[in-house]
Simulated scan of single mutants.
Amino acid sequence: MAKSKRVIELMIAINQRKKFTARELADEFEVSIRTIMRDLQVLSELGVPLYTEYGPHGGYRVLRERQLPPITFSEQEAVAIFFAYQSLQHYGALPFAEESITALNKFYYYLPDDTKSKIDKMKQRVVFWTPKRQAPTPYLQSLLDAALQQQPMQILYDSKDGANQRTIQPIGVYSYNGYWYCPGYCFWKERYLLFRIDRVLSAEAAADGHRTVDLSGFSIMDWFKPPEEQPVIADEHIQIEAVLTSDGVRRCQWEAWNHTDMEVHEDGTGTVRMCIRPNEVDYFASYFLGFGPEVKVNQPAQLVELMQNLVAKMAQLYAPPK
């Protein structure tokens, strides 16, 4: 086997194990221990973070910041990957933000000049735009790490009732319309809630031994399913029914969130039937009011009454002076 090919395969092999010895690698690659030692020295000079442990039970370990083996791409794949990174450029905050910048710079630097030229031209014609929000999200990475480890977090959250301490267990994080959100189980309210991450004023790991909930079978994509289809949420559901004009249907179809439960009639009008959680009633009252006369909510009565109260307040606000 050629040395260059063996070094690449050696890099793949050591990335797949936590600990190894030179003898194990020599046997696997059918070369001498001296050859393996030279190859490991090459990998170390290339930046692979190897750690040597001495003694009868010693060997090698790869430190946490591992180097991945080289991967080849076609030109179209390279362009696609570059613009996948570029799609994140308008976000004010990202998990792994610094790493995404360095990865993009490395990737671009080693591209052929003609591929760089093609990408530079496309950058003037293609953009994945999202509103850039000014609100900082210093605990975005911490909440993502907690979701990965199923670790409860004690947070100070700026809710509409003021800042309050609570312990949550994050399901994951997602971005929508320039904001970052974290759905999770709130041990204070004893139900699943959605938190806007820029409103998290502090966050730290909960005390050892704090109760946890098993979220291993609940992915972040499950959060976007209708409540009755979600795998672990057993909250009470509220059924909404709303009738839309043809303009309301077009507006509804244009909105970013999914209206899979909207029925469009032959005349262009439509009916929305969907389930929501009780804590989402306030949000949908404001949302449907934004449609003006293009929507009429028929049920539930709780939502209709709330919208009537909001309309009455708006009428008072815009009433002519006496």
Rank of each mutant, 00 (worst) to 15 (best):
T260M: 09
E255F: 06
L244C: 14
G248M: 05
E241A: 07
Q253I: 01
G248R: 03
R251N: 14
D267M: 08
V264H: 06
A256Y: 10
D247R: 13
I238Q: 14
C252R: 11
D261I: 03
W257S: 09
H265L: 14
T245V: 04
C252I: 01
V249G: 10
D247L: 07
E241Y: 00
T260N: 09
E263R: 10
D261M: 07
E266Q: 03
M262A: 06
T260G: 08
W257C: 10
D247K: 08
H259N: 11
N258A: 09
A242H: 03
E255I: 07
D247T: 00
W254G: 08
H265K: 14
V249Q: 13
E241S: 07
E241D: 12
Q253D: 12
W257N: 02
D267L: 12
V264N: 14
E266V: 04
D247H: 05
E255T: 05
E263N: 10
Q239E: 11
C252D: 12
D267P: 01
L244E: 14
A242V: 01
H265I: 05
V249H: 14
N258Q: 12
E241G: 04
T245W: 00
C252K: 03
R251P: 05
W257E: 14
W257R: 05
T245A: 10
E263F: 01
S246W: 13
T260R: 12
D247C: 02
V264I: 15
G248T: 01
V243M: 10
S246Y: 06
Q239S: 04
T245D: 13
I240L: 03
M262V: 09
T260I: 07
D267W: 09
E255D: 14
E266I: 01
E255C: 08
Q253R: 08
A242I: 00
W254L: 09
T260K: 13
I240V: 12
E241R: 00
V249D: 15
V264P: 02
T260E: 15
V249F: 08
W257K: 00
W257T: 06
R250P: 04
M262G: 04
Q253Y: 01
E255W: 02
A256S: 09
